[in-house]
């Protein structure tokens, strides 16, 4: 029984993906799998997930991850009931913090 359940949620175990030695991983929603349940946007602490309208999608909407905001933290994986979130390599991103606010840039303090 345990293994059956594990199979279902296999993709939800956020082990670092195989490419993680080369590129920083970030999360991506596989839109065909998304059932538009609205669970992942609130769990993302970095405002990286939004719901978008998708005419033609089974649910007319889908979650979308904004690459620039995703810190690859892993929180959203456990919120998704259907295994729709996967890792992708952030090929032009660097492993740097993504939360630094512009307030830190334009100041003479």
């Amino acid at each position: 029984m345990i293994s059956g359940q594990m199979m279902k949620y296999r993709g939800l175990y956020p082990f670092p993906p195989s490419f993680a030695k080369e590129f920083p991983p970030i999360a991506q929603v596989v839109e065909e799998h998304c059932i538009a349940c609205d669970r992942c946007p609130p769990i993302c602490f970095f405002d990286a997930i939004v719901m978008e309208n998708r005419p033609g999608h089974k649910y007319s909407r889908t979650a979308v991850i904004i690459n620039a905001n995703c810190t690859g933290c892993g929180l959203c994986f456990d919120a998704c009931p259907v295994d729709a979130i996967i890792w992708i390599p952030d090929k032009d991103g660097e492993a740097k913090p993504k939360t630094a606010s512009p307030l830190m840039e334009d100041t003479d303090l």
Partner: peptide, 19 residues
């Protein structure tokens, strides 16, 4: 000052209950 990715995992998270 450098963090692994992923760095969090929600264990025993009840998907039905959300937050």
């Amino acid at each position: 000052r450098f963090w692994p990715r992923p760095r969090y995992k929600l264990l025993d998270w009840d998907k039905q209950m959300d937050g």
